[in-house]
Design a protein around this nucleic acid. Structure first.
Lengths: 117, 117
DNA sequence: CATAGTAGGTTCCTAGAAGATAGTGACTAC
DNA sequence: GTAGTCACTATCTTCTAGGAACCTACTATG
């Protein structure tokens, strides 16, 4: 009984699952990066999760993975045109954030101060 | 060591956690709704999770909750102006979806067909 | 009188995802 | 021969979303 499901749910699952936006962000701002470089930029992600996310982004066509069979191995990740096409979405979101995020924080303070000790 | 964290992460956590977009969607398209009406529109959400999400949206100032002390009780939820201000974000996202989602599906098919049996 | 139904939840329990920790292979530098 | 590099995997623990059942306080039905 879902007569009117939200039409953007598929995109939300695609683009806004955990770690995907930070990964796309660093790749779009620093170009081609190696695994450990992404890891360092993100700061707190574990290799297991980062591998999972990158594999998924690769499968979805948002990043490319280039493996160089050297010792030690070298793998480079790069954002694709499809991934870059998301930038208007991120821009709109950043704009909303600048304009309205303070209101959210104010609402939270008001809610927390109201009879919930 | 996060010299350049993704600036939209706070908004992503706010707006794109599980069930929040569908909830905002039905509230923006059907106006003032009761708990069970939202439940029916979403179809597969459990009351526990729906309560949690609505409380959080209320705290963040994106929806209002109006309690009528009747028997049986009646509670109405409505989207706020702050919540409505997100519609450009959703519109950009819907647009991207229309234009690029097929490419994502094509990328997935290509990836799955390529040597991963 | 005894069920059954109603609205808006809560309580308890389980399954799956995220996260923390340690290890691997094949080399190089000290 | 010990330590370090890189891109991961393997294993364990925690955390959260989800499922099923129950609650209050009433009304309507048989």
């Amino acid at each position: 009984m879902t007569p009117d499901p939200c039409p953007i749910t598929p995109v939300v699952d695609l683009v806004f699952s955990r770690w995907t936006t930070p990964i796309l962000w660093v790749l779009s701002h620093h170009g081609r990066l190696r695994f450990t470089e992404i890891e360092r930029y993100l700061g707190s992600v574990t290799p297991k999760v980062l591998t999972e996310r990158l594999r998924r982004l690769e499968r979805d066509g948002l990043v490319t993975r280039t493996y160089h069979a050297e010792i030690p191995p070298r793998v480079e990740y790069e954002i694709t045109d499809l991934g870059r096409s998301l930038s208007p979405v991120f821009a709109t979101l950043a704009e909303w954030s600048d304009e309205h995020l303070p209101q959210v924080h104010a609402a939270r303070r008001a809610y927390d101060d109201m009879g919930r000790p």
